[in-house]
Design a protein around this nucleic acid. Structure first.
Lengths: 346, 346
DNA sequence: GTTTAGCACTCTCTGATAGAGAGTGCTAAA
DNA sequence: TTTAGCACTCTCTATCAGAGAGTGCTAAAC
């Protein structure tokens, strides 16, 4: 924290006050406003001096000479870090969320989709939830359906109720009976095995009992692998994109268009969520800290959710840099806790 | 067509010219512009007189006294009707579409999603495609997977490669074996039967062979029915919503917000597409002819697509009232033809 | 009788200008 | 070190004038 060395306690208080005020009003904050609304017992002139210092240190900026100040990204960064040090707790809206999760979700996809809606509506930002990667899932059931010619529909069900399906093309034409047999074989051998483990497991089995399953299993696996491998892209549930229209900073049509465009290209979003997975736990990306050019006026608040002890995916919100971090952060954390609880039960 | 009784050929030509011009420029059209760009060999003054007449008859309107004219909805209606009478044909972009469909689609849902993208990108409007209703599908394969406790995952595959899945709660807990048995029973008996026909078919069978299948089939059907009945809402594929941002009439942030909001609520959209299904064939809804308040500045161009001889669903585009009907209409019709061809092959 | 030229009129759009308001930065006093 | 005072800067709004586009009407031409 050497970066903040030059800040005495009073300057920090004023900086926090400015950020607070700007978050609330979206207007540049003047020295008079601060001296009136917060009782520092300092005259506007004094505050002016301090604000000038803060500007020089890079925490605040000026749209033009005669306007008030607003936070730079560095200013937000400081604000957010001092917030998270406080370990925020929010009670009232959290009770509402708890109630939302007082129901049963049959499929994991429903739970996640619902969660992104909850996130967007409670925070008035855009809610995002990334689905667990397929390798992390537990094998539960597999099914092959002969469609026509050499087309086979493969349906995979994970233990947590996630369903993946894909039509694949095979070189030889199997009868439905043969396909059923193959599926039964897979289902017997891989029940409750994590997908990423199947290959290893298979090698083990072949060593033990070489001839018996060789051919059938081999074929069945070849079929199913196509489904697992094909999930190049993690699914992401996004909700409340319209919410950004309500924030005054996006009145600018051009900016807005660019943002919407960025959402169409989900891969970048996935990258950011994936990074959250690696890091684990809460992450706040402020403004251009995210790599998406079109979203340099947005902040990301993300965290991970788990099933039992293992991290499954990431969730969070995207909103204007000027979002209400003090309520959004605990809301995102709490939601992740709820999702984890639901998942662990499944 | 008594409505157009008062229009002589010349007035109609000028009306068409004004609509054309307005569609191209999005600016009110003056009499001088018409007399210059189209060679009617009439002076602006004469055209002015005719335009005044057209205004009195309700085909044109004035934003303010000293501005040019633009079409009313009645004006567009006339324009579109005289267009469709001409039986438009468009060659060049159509070749492009043909090429797009030169590939195989394993699943019907892929074909439809792709189609809505094609529609939006070729017309620069919003593409919409409604999926076939489940009752119209042919039974191909059914599968039950025991999840946990009393939860069963039901997967239904139609002959055209559409996959529906749903988790349902059952009163008694079946073993996976029992479930497999039930599924096999269903699959044997209902192969290639249209869903809406299954009930009748079942009654037939029970009459013939009362005891044999009674209990098992009954249970299996009870399970599966929940999937069929639950599809209350037709799926709709929507693409290119961002396209409307490019049309100058939606610069107004408020209008735009209202429109985006209307898209979130898909049920109204489904209503409109369903109506197209009933009517059959091409339908053009201009402005407030659609019942959605927020879309009263938009037009719908929709038609139906078929598999073989039976109508399966509707597709079309949504764009500003001021859309290029002369190219959009044939594009929509051609796309529907391509989809029908693809479907009939599946 | 229809078409056209001419002209006054209306409305929007643009740019210039001025004054109010908000806030700063500097200086000098407390 | 803090504060009061004051000149200065910049934005925002309203007002105004002139240009431009287009109409509607009238009277003349075909």
């Amino acid at each position: 924290m050497a970066r903040y060395a030059k800040l005495d306690e009073r300057s920090m208080q004023i900086l926090r006050a400015v950020v607070n005020c700007y978050i609330a009003t979206a207007e540049p904050v003047g020295s008079r406003t601060i001296s009136r609304k917060y009782n520092f017992n300092l005259s506007p002139a004094t505050i002016r001096n301090i604000m000038a210092d803060l500007e020089e240190l890079g925490y605040l900026k000026h749209p033009h000479t005669s306007a008030g100040r607003l936070p730079t990204e560095q200013g937000y960064r400081f604000y957010v870090e001092s917030l998270t040090k406080e370990r925020l707790q929010l009670q009232q809206p959290i009770a509402g969320i708890e109630k939302c999760y007082n129901r049963r979700f049959a499929e994991i996809s429903h739970l996640l989709r619902y969660t992104s809606k909850i996130l967007s509506s409670t925070t008035h930002c855009i809610g995002v939830v990334s689905a667990p990667r397929i390798e992390d899932m537990m094998f539960k059931h597999m099914n092959f359906v002969h469609l026509r010619d050499n087309l086979v529909l493969v349906v995979f069900v994970s233990r947590s109720g996630s369903v993946q399906q894909k039509v694949i093309e095979v070189s030889e034409s199997y009868t439905q009976e043969k396909l059923d047999q193959m599926a039964r074989c897979l289902n017997e051998h891989f029940k409750d095995v994590p997908l990423f483990y199947i290959r290893t497991r298979l090698l083990d089995m072949m060593r033990q009992d070489k001839q018996l399953y060789d051919e059938l299993l081999e074929r069945a696996l070849r079929l199913s692998r196509q489904v697992f491998d094909s999930s190049e892209e993690t699914t992401v549930y996004i909700d409340g994109q319209l919410n950004i229209l309500n924030h005054p900073e996006f009145e600018d049509l051009k900016k807005m268009k660019a943002m919407f465009g960025a959402f169409e290209e989900k891969s970048q979003l996935i990258l950011i969520l994936d990074k959250c997975l690696e890091g684990g736990g809460l992450r706040v990306l402020i403004g251009s800290e995210n790599q998406i050019e079109e979203m340099k006026d947005c902040s990301f608040v993300t965290t991970t959710y788990k099933a039992g002890d293992s991290v499954m995916g990431a969730l969070g919100v995207i909103g204007p840099t000027r979002m209400e971090y003090s309520s959004v952060i605990p809301l995102v954390e709490y939601t992740a806790k709820m999702v984890s609880r639901m998942l662990s039960r499944m």
